[in-house]
Design a protein around this nucleic acid. Structure first.
Lengths: 348, 348
DNA sequence: TTGAAAGCGTTACCAG
DNA sequence: CTGGTAACGCTTTCAA
């Protein structure tokens, strides 16, 4: 009458439990499971079978405690209204998994970060930290620095220091300027993003500089605030201008804004990309922008490579904490869509 | 000449290191830091100061090993092109943090999940799992069931079993039908989403059923595939119809698609929301849809509550694993924008 | 080829 | 009020 209460949540299999049912020691089980050479094939097979049957999964917490790495990377995500970030997130998750790492979300969105959240970085023994937000939260930066936790920025560069990967934004902007000039455009407008993000500023700077090199000045500038509706607002104002004042080429520094510009022009019955209409180009190469009804001419960010290099830089710094800081710029490629007139003699 | 090499990565503070510098035992430090009553104020103060100075953060791995909870929740994210999901993600991260939990991303996007990823659920001793994707990956479902790890679906309901929170989609659809009928609309169209998501189907079902109850039949149905461009395609076809055949009311089952419909109608010079134009309504209440240039009439999902209840259901099941499965439906609220004509006598 | 034991950082229990 | 010790699950010497 005093049987032990049945365990409702059956204890998970451990090395010890496996060892007991196999009639061997914990060490043997550990070695067998990790493929250590000096275990007899017979024993190994028996243990493998037992482990599979029991649904054994090694306890990462215990492993980490031994002093190894946790396999966990902290992630700070920026505001997600720019469609580039969701795409970046998917890619990050996939490639982190390919490298045997998981992502712990430390922060997402605009709000500021609680101290408690920043502490999680230490508590969970995170191996490193990836920051994709426009602004690098200083709590995170401090904690990483003081505790020698490697930190890599993806899609942004801090002016002063830090390790980062991003698309060569200035070069992309310049390439777009060339394309528009080659197609014979004369009145250029820019729809800019947040004034405090290096990403947007560099794209715009590269564009304007190339215009200048080739003897052109920017005719108009709008503030698009990095949102699609900011693009729409700019497009609306452009559509409302008398045709002779209207810019014939518009560079929106992100695809989200560019799509907004296109929508507004169409709503205002201004043709886009055709002779006599307005050419619109964007930046990023998000999936929705490449397909109808937008088919933007834009700079394709090498997303897979950006993320891959970002993770590689991070992993390298886990192995070797004293690596010098490093900034990697990856060139984007021009994607020719139908939202902008093509230079004469290009393609068909 | 054989000084130990300087430790480049200074060892992190631990209870032991604090105990040594304070000249007390580990237990005392532990108790002081966790606010245990029976510690002299003097000792407590001294230890607190020491801990702060050393930047001490308790090791969550060690804590978890003792058998407590890890404070980690697994997250399975659906394809992120629907703007509702990024918003959901932000809210989840915020509210999980408020409850002292962090999210580990197990999967994002459409691809199938590696076994290794599913194993992470066990390895990291995740306390529970939140699934927001349209389809529940069966590996995850199995692992959770077999290991008594609670799982809650947010924004979807599995037909057969499971615990879930979602907006009352059918009711929202019905409410929109009422609104459109009250405004005198006669020809109704639906732009549907994925055929395999309960969310889309329920919205559509509720809408059509209410139409029928009030003696109306659906005039047209488009497949919008849950994407904005699907909405655009439907809108384009509507704009191309002769005015007398054109539906005067369109229900797109998500705001993303509804915005696409609006863009296409405007591009086709079909007025939206005005007398003589087409009324467009959506569902979700994503931020971009509520502001110009869309200002959709839509069902506002109670996002904060949906996420809050989802986490509460999950936490409750961590404490008490044998709670019966539970499905919570939260009513959305009708948000009156300018994308649809209002019933006569409503407001100003 | 296998086993025993130490130790990672915490917490909890039992003494003092 | 404080200290010692065992235990969590694992890897890694060191021994046999």
């Amino acid at each position: 009458m005093d049987l032990p209460a049945p365990r409702l949540r059956p204890a998970r299999a451990t090395l010890l439990s496996l060892a007991q049912s196999a009639g061997v020691s914990v060490s043997t089980v550990s070695r067998a499971l990790r493929g250590d050479g000096r275990i007899s094939p017979a024993t190994r097979k028996r243990i493998d079978a037992l482990a599979t049957e029991a649904g054994y999964a090694p306890n990462a917490m215990a492993r980490t405690l031994l002093g190894g790495r946790s396999g966990l990377i902290g992630l700070v995500l920026g505001p997600m209204h720019n469609p580039f970030y969701p795409a970046l997130l998917e890619e990050l998750v996939t490639q982190a998994a390919e490298r045997g790492q998981r992502l712990v979300i430390l922060h997402a969105g605009e709000g500021s970060m609680e101290d408690r959240t920043a502490q999680a970085l230490l508590q969970y023994q995170l191996d490193g930290c990836i920051v994709t937000s426009a602004v690098l939260p200083s709590r995170i930066a401090t904690i990483c620095r003081e505790n020698a936790v490697p930190l890599v920025m993806v899609n942004r560069v801090a002016r002063e220091h830090g390790t980062a990967v991003c698309c060569d934004n200035a070069e992309g902007g310049a390439r777009l300027a060339d394309w528009l000039l080659d197609a014979g455009h004369a009145r250029h407008a820019v729809v800019g993003g947040h004034a405090d993000t290096s990403t947007s500023l560099d794209r715009e700077r590269g564009f304007v500089a190339r215009l200048a090199e080739r003897g052109h000045a920017l005719a108009l500038r709008f503030d698009g605030g990095s949102t699609r509706e900011g693009g729409w607002a700019a497009g609306t104002r452009i559509a409302a201008m008398p045709p002779e004042e209207r810019p014939d080429a518009v560079f929106a520094v992100s695809d989200g804004m560019a799509m907004g510009v296109v929508d507004a022009l169409r709503a205002g019955s201004v043709p886009v990309g055709e002779a006599g209409g307005v050419s619109v180009v964007g930046f990023d190469g998000v999936a929705a922008a490449l397909r109808p009804p937008y088919e933007l001419t834009t700079i394709l960010q090498p997303l897979r490579a950006v993320v891959g290099r970002g993770l590689d830089l991070l992993l390298a710094r886990m192995e070797e904490p004293d690596r010098p800081e490093e900034v990697v710029m990856l060139r984007g490629t021009l994607h020719v869509g139908r939202s902008a007139r093509r230079p004469v003699g290009w393609g068909i």
